[in-house]
Design a protein around this nucleic acid. Structure first.
Lengths: 196, 196
DNA sequence: GTGTGCATGTAAGGAGTTACATGATTGC
DNA sequence: GCAATCATGTAACTCCTTACATGCACAC
C-alpha cells in the first residue's frame, strides 16, 4: 500500500492536533473543505493503514461505553511527513472542474444562455470567496495568533484572493458578452478580459 | 450507466470536430490538458457507452487494413449536451492539489525549506501560465478567428490569467518569508500578501 | 422520549490511472 | 530497416464517494 497524498493529509491533521478520525473530519469540513475534501469512509481505513506502517499508534480513548480512538504520530511518522513536505518534484497542476468544462463548450449555447452560464460560475466563485473570508480566514488568523501556526491561514487567504480574482474576471467576461449581444448581434470574437 | 461530466466531455469534443477516440486524445493534450486531462483508456469505453445510449453513432472509417472509427453526434446527443450545458445547479468548486496541501502543513518545515516550497509552487504556476500563453492561447485565438468558436480561447486566457495571479501572490509570500527570516528570526505571523 | 451530535466502521460501485497487448502506416 | 505516430482496445488497480449499519451521550 502506497503512501498517497491522502495519507499525508491524515498524518498532517493528526500532527496539527486532531486525535480521532471523527475530529479530522470535523476540522477538514471547516478549514480544508475547498482544498482537500474528504470523507469518513476514507479516513478510517487510512488510519488503519498508517498504523500498520508504524506511522501512527492507536490509543484507546473510550469514555464509558462510547468507543473512541486517539492516534499519535510516531517519530517515523514525523520523518515521513517531513520528507514528503520537502519533496522537490512538484507535479503539474491539474484542475478538473465541471463548470469550466461547460464554459469550454459554451459556443453551442444561445448568447443569452452563455451569459447565464458565466453568471452562475461567477456567483459560485463569489460564494466560495465569501465563505473563505467570513468563516475560514478568521479561524486561520486566530490559529496563527494563538499557536504561531500560520500556513492554514495563508492557504485561506490565497484561496479567497484567487477566487476573488476569478470572480472579477468572469464579471468582465459577462459584461463583454452582454455588450456584444446588445450592439452587435453578429459580433466577431471580442478580446477576452485582461487579455495578455 | 450515468452520464457523467466525462461523457459530456467526449460528446462535446466530437461536436467540435474530433471524429475518433485517438483524435479526441490528441486535441485534449493540446488545449484541455490543464482543465480536463484524460486518457485513451477512458475515452474508448466511454465512446461505447455513448453509442449504447444512442447519443453517438459509429461509422467505420478504416483505411485499408488500419481500423479507424468515426463517431457522429446524434440529434439526441446534441439535445443531451445542450441540456447539460444549460443546467442551473452548479456544484461547489473543488480543487485538490498536492502542492497546496504541502503548503497547508508547511509550518512543520524550517523557514528555509518553507521558502523553497513556495518557490517551487510559484515556478509551477509560472510554467503553466507560460505554456498556456505560448501554446494554447494562440491556438484558441486562431480557432476563434477561423470558425467563430471563441470559448476554448476564453478558457485558455482565463487559465493563464489565474495562474499569473497565483504566481504573483506566491512571489509576494516568498518575499515576506525571506524578509521575516532575515530580520526577525522569531517574528510573529506577518500579514499575508494581499490580505483582505 | 427524541433529535442532534459524537463515534466507528463496512459494502458497493464509479471514476480515473498505468500498464499491457496488438498491429498498420509513414518518414528517415 | 527502424522509429515515431496512428489507432483501438483490455486488465488491474487506486482513489474516492454514497449508502448502509451500529450505538452512545446529551440537551431540550
Amino acid at each position: 500500500m502506497k503512501t498517497s497524498p491522502s495519507s499525508f493529509f491524515i498524518l498532517g491533521m493528526l500532527q496539527f492536533g486532531a486525535t480521532s478520525g471523527y475530529a479530522i473530519k470535523k476540522a477538514t469540513d471547516v478549514s480544508m473543505r475547498y482544498f482537500w475534501p474528504t470523507s469518513l469512509a476514507q479516513i478510517y481505513p487510512e488510519l488503519h493503514r498508517l498504523e500498520e506502517q508504524g506511522l501512527v499508534v492507536r490509543h484507546d480513548d473510550s469514555h464509558g461505553a462510547r468507543t473512541r480512538a486517539s492516534y499519535e504520530v510516531t517519530e517515523k511518522g514525523r520523518e515521513t511527513l517531513l520528507s514528503w513536505l520537502a519533496e522537490t518534484d512538484e507535479e503539474q497542476f491539474r484542475f478538473r472542474d465541471e463548470g469550466v468544462l461547460r464554459l469550454y463548450f459554451a459556443d453551442a449555447l444561445a448568447p443569452d444562455d452563455q451569459i447565464q452560464l458565466v453568471r452562475r460560475l461567477r456567483n459560485r466563485c463569489a460564494e466560495t470567496k465569501s465563505e473563505l473570508r467570513e468563516n475560514v480566514i478568521p479561524l486561520g488568523d486566530a490559529l496563527a495568533e494563538m499557536t504561531g501556526t500560520r500556513f492554514p491561514g495563508t492557504i485561506a487567504h490565497f484561496g479567497a484572493d484567487v477566487f476573488a480574482f476569478a470572480e472579477e474576471w468572469l464579471a468582465n467576461l459577462e459584461q463583454e458578452l452582454e455588450e456584444g449581444e446588445q450592439s452587435e448581434p453578429n459580433a466577431e470574437a471580442a478580446p477576452d478580459p485582461e487579455a495578455s
